[in-house]
Amino acid sequence: MFIMSYIFNSAVLGSMFAVPSQVVDNYIKLASASQLKTLLWICRHISEPIDPAIISREIGYSVGDVEDALTVIASWGVLIGTDVTVSPAPAAVEEPKKEEPQKHFDDISASKPSSEQIMTRCKEDPEIPAMFADIEKMLGKTLGYDSRSILLMMHDHYGLPIEVIYMLVDYCKSVGKSGFSYISKVGKTWGEREIDTIEKADEQIKILNSCNRLWTDFAEMAGIQNPRPSSSQSAYLRTWSVELKFNAEMIYLAYEEMLNHTSKLSFPYMNKILMNWHSKGIKTPDDIEKEKEEYRRKKSPAAKSDASYDINEFIKRGEALPVYKKGS
């Protein structure tokens, strides 16, 4: 078997731009594709304003994904807010563990079946039109060509069984996002993670619902208006609740601690705080207070008395306190 080897094409060196070495050294294993593409765009357009809408259009990710990427890149020390004081780049922080997808699919919009192909599949498999009818009842609306294309591709292209698609659509409806753009995005994620059984789907929905409840409780405490977390925020919430076992109150306390250092909501910064607490065995608000008290005690130790006698002992014995005169 012949294996091609490669060397760098030095002919392309005529036009270059720099990428911060600290990103490659500390974050390349942790960075997602959207974060790296956003960073490369910024480095290539170093003198231009950073506009999430423009970046979104040029790198092929949603504005929300770009904004999430900018938050993470800022935590690397690469970006500086225009309303904050410049500070040294932070050390590498441990990012939430993310499952490596075993598969990667193209978006459905890039490979939709034709109307004729949909009709053919309906004739080949009577469960397909039955699925369309059931989901119409579930959502209370008639499915058009785009909706049917998405459902069919989720089944044929992403490999999701019909019963799993029912569970997926029902979950999306339960969180108030029954649009097929969102359903398609969730379907792609489930396909890549091979959530292809009722048991796997049930476990995934439990985790998603838990993260949504956690966000609701935390957002209410923090006065945040967003009804749902972004995809990257959900990844952090999953790590904090499932792996680190922190509840909404502890996450809110990490948020308050974050506000002592930055005025902008930063999940990467909160992650650093929570990871630190976890490593120290801090699990409750009482544990936090104990650590603060210990820190204050070490910073401000009680002054030791220089007196060579015990005043209380003199009083107890009814003796007069010694009087020292100048020059004696």
Results as ranks from 00 to 15, higher is better:
D68Y: 03
D125F: 05
D83S: 09
Q102S: 15
V164M: 00
A69V: 03
A307Q: 09
L160E: 00
S231V: 15
D107T: 07
K37Q: 14
R121L: 12
G159L: 01
G281Q: 05
P322A: 01
I224F: 02
V19D: 08
L253I: 05
K137A: 09
G140S: 11
R57N: 13
E291N: 08
I50W: 03
I50A: 07
D310W: 08
L244F: 05
F17S: 05
L40S: 13
G77R: 02
D170A: 15
S328F: 03
D202G: 09
Y171A: 05
S266C: 04
S114R: 01
L244N: 04
S230Y: 02
K245E: 09
Y182A: 13
K292R: 15
K290C: 09
Y255L: 01
R297Q: 15
P301Q: 06
A33C: 10
T82M: 12
L36D: 05
A53P: 03
F2N: 11
T262D: 10
P88H: 02
D156K: 08
S231E: 13
P49W: 00
W76T: 11
L265M: 08
R297P: 08
S279N: 11
L321Q: 03
W215S: 01
F246W: 03
E95V: 07
P268L: 03
I80P: 05
P126S: 11
I162V: 10
G64S: 11
Y269E: 08
P229C: 04
Y255M: 01
E313P: 04
R296W: 15
Y324G: 08
S279R: 14
L259W: 01
A92M: 06
A222N: 00
A222I: 00
S47L: 04
K304W: 05
M153K: 07
D217I: 05
N247H: 03
D83Y: 03
M1D: 12
C172W: 02
R228N: 07
I59L: 04
G281N: 06
K290S: 09
F180W: 01
S328W: 06
Q233Y: 00
G77I: 02
D25E: 13
K188E: 05
D134Q: 13
E100C: 04
Y171F: 09
V164Q: 00
L139E: 12
